[in-house]
Design a protein around this nucleic acid. Structure first.
Lengths: 107, 107
DNA sequence: TAATTATATAGCCTTTTAGCTATATAGATG
DNA sequence: CATCTATATAGCTAAAAGGCTATATAATTA
């Protein structure tokens, strides 16, 4: 995992519109228009958000007639969760795992 | 958790310099200068990053002589991990937990 | 093939971000 | 009290982000 990858993932997740899109997609894939409707934003604006999500690997696009269904791709979410997981020891007050991680990292 | 809070947290985590600072702080608190040294950045630049981390709640500041030691605050990391955790079902191919979450959310 | 529908792209504007230099402030020490 | 050390703040610049309108493209349908 290059840092730039986490940059894009966390940066994509930093926007509430994009998190809302992901939340909606958790219920199943959706067309662009289906995502525009509840957003209060214009279609091109949503398309821009989708591009950012796609570049972060968080969604992928299909093709169905003249529609481009969007679906959630969990891998980057997992990557982000794993990054955060390295700090889990901190909020669990059990430092063993973190220490092990840091020790391995010092190479 | 207001959305703005997650905005600030994810946005703070989107920068590699800031993630590196958190990584360093996982080994224990550090002065500003100790964080500047390996960063390749100027001191005011690092202070700015620290302000962003602080506003996201990810670090807190102490006072020791003319030094302002920085320490890691895990709560926002936990909050971010919990948000991601709602999607865990997706990468675990076990949708039960996610469905339960979404059902609860529809209110 | 013309018209309609769904989506993407171009281009504009304003705000934010990330870096910098210069300078101010707070506390320690000669 | 003068100075030095650590850190913060002000203010600048360039680039990126996030919104918009107008328009282009792709696929469907009359």
């Amino acid at each position: 995992m290059q840092p730039a990858e986490l940059d894009r993932i966390f940066s994509a997740l930093a926007d509430p519109t994009r998190r809302a899109i992901l939340h909606r997609l958790a219920r199943g894939e959706a067309t662009v228009n289906a995502l525009v409707a509840p957003s209060g934003l214009r279609q091109p604006t949503v398309s821009k958000h989708l591009k950012i999500l796609e570049e972060a690997g968080l969604v992928s696009r299909g093709r169905a007639a003249q529609t481009r269904p969007v679906r959630l791709e969990p891998a980057p979410l997992k990557a982000a969760a794993q990054w955060l997981g390295d700090y889990e020891a901190f909020w669990n007050a059990s430092y063993d795992r973190l220490e092990a991680y840091l020790k391995g990292e010092e190479a």
